[in-house]
Amino acid sequence: MKAWLNFSPEIVNQAVISDLIKNFDITFNILKANITPKGGEMLIEISGDQAQDGIKYLEEQGINLTPAKRVVKKDEEKCVDCGACVSLCPVDAISIDEDWKVELDDQKCIGCGFCSSSCPTRAIKLAD
């Protein structure tokens, strides 16, 4: 699952993530992180046998976890299917289907924002 982790200023100096990886059998991928001494947030993808235990651990450590439902949103009215975004996606989450329509795979998306900043009609927005 993909989720946003919210770090409060009190815990930013604790090695929570490395403890998590040491103690649980999980696969853990950091997609995005912005953490300062004033706290911050991190978008992660977590899977593996002990993923649920790991999530519980994170919550116990005082990290607020919200599952990320959507990473990007495409406005179908604005999109003209030009395909400018297709070659910019680092994880192949954007493709052109057999009807030449541009499709965005939210499951693969890591929210890098490259497509959204390069869209000529501003049809792609990063979800909050």
């Binding site: 297709v86 910019l88 009807d99």
Partner: peptide, 11 residues
């Protein structure tokens, strides 16, 4: 290397 059309073939 990935390609991008820029003009819409669908349209």
């Amino acid at each position: 290397i990935q390609t991008s059309p820029m003009s819409s073939f669908r349209k």
